[in-house]
Design a protein around this nucleic acid. Structure first.
Lengths: 204, 204
DNA sequence: TAGTTCCGAAACCCCCCAGTATCGTTGACG
DNA sequence: CGTCAACGATACTGGGGGGTTTCGGAACTA
């Protein structure tokens, strides 16, 4: 409980209409949708407010700037990045990787990643949250999964884990952001079976 | 000889000061530098003109818009993409790949690739030249080199050439554009030796 | 020298958009 | 019901930048 909430409950609540907390989510959702559809530059604050069914004043009452709103939209909206804690050991690296793709997780956020790219170059705050949300967490997850497979004895012993851990994130981001192609299930499975696994597995 | 040049030589040359063709190169060079330093949005036409030692009118006398100038800056400036014709068969895939990186070619243009990214999303013309210059040509080159290695008998026979051909371009673009890290010689060599070659080579 | 064309510099126009201010309205509290 | 804060809508401000025009000067032809 924050001190502000305590003040509301214990001390007399201030008069006047109370803030509609559901608007926070509506605004952040609108921001994410527009980020995915039009990118950071195309996501105007007027459009965000309009899609959320709110006025701009309501948006700026909650966030001081477009950047701060964007940071919250990305961090709160796309959720805490997946970690190895969320993925029970299936006993095989292939099944572990499939679980990452096909498990019951948040929807594909490559569109948001793509839409954020333009803002990353010129905004350190955005760059920081982008890196944490879309780069570091994914490489770390891959590295942890590979490490687990290594302990199970699945991997050859000369694998460069740090390098290999970035192969899948790189190929997925490249296909979406740089090459501008769809990242569908076919592509992911084919990448896993024809690139990642042949690269690390002991069996031949 | 173009008809315009013929007209200049045969028919009477029009009166007045002649266009300084060297300005074209100066402007395109300034555009590339600013594209690399500040990205497409940060590259203002005023800055391009100023760096080229020209007036904006001079720029707009040659190109109708910022986009058209950018397209020319990228296509003319970074040169014709490398093809397998430019790379004599060294007899080994590793040496072929090293020749791509360390051969006597144009300077590293990952900065320009990175700077163009923001414009790709919202401009089909830029997207087209970007794709030709930085995506298609590189994947094709990789694929041709792999094919050549396959004919030499270097490769395992179950290699997914189309998929593998995009691994190196993906990892380099990812590291630079998405992860925001330097693409130095160490990284490239390590990628070749610990990812690309283990993935395709027959020897084990 | 007269006429023409290109030059750099700079003023200018116009649109877009982040952010602010003001409106009348709505709803919670006393 | 009176008060007051949050609400949606909307007008407004200020800065940035693409693109155009103007201007005096320079370079070229005749």
């Amino acid at each position: 409980m924050t001190s502000a909430q305590a003040a509301d409950d214990v001390v007399a609540r201030r008069a006047g209409r109370r803030r509609d907390d559901s608007k926070d989510d509506a605004i952040l959702l609108a921001a994410r949708e527009l980020l995915a559809e039009r990118g950071f530059d195309g996501m105007t604050m007027d459009a965000v407010a309009a899609r959320a069914g709110a006025g701009k004043a309501t948006v700026y009452r909650r966030w001081a700037s477009k950047v701060e709103m964007t940071v919250d939209a990305v961090t709160c909206g796309t959720g805490v990045p997946l970690t190895i804690e969320d993925l029970p050991d299936t006993g095989s690296l292939r099944d572990d990787l499939m679980a990452v793709r096909f498990g019951r997780h948040r929807p594909d956020d490559t569109e948001i990643m793509s839409g954020l790219m333009s803002a990353v170059r010129e905004n350190p705050e955005v760059a920081s949250v982008f890196h944490a949300q879309f780069v570091r967490s994914r490489i770390t997850l891959m590295r942890d999964l590979l490490e687990r497979a290594r302990l199970r004895g699945e991997l050859r012993d000369d694998v460069d884990l740090d390098m290999v851990a970035s192969v899948a994130p790189a190929m997925i981001a490249y296909r979406k952001v740089v090459a501008g192609q769809r990242v569908d299930d076919d592509f992911v499975v084919r990448m896993i079976d024809n690139v990642i696994l042949p690269l690390v597995l002991d069996v031949r």
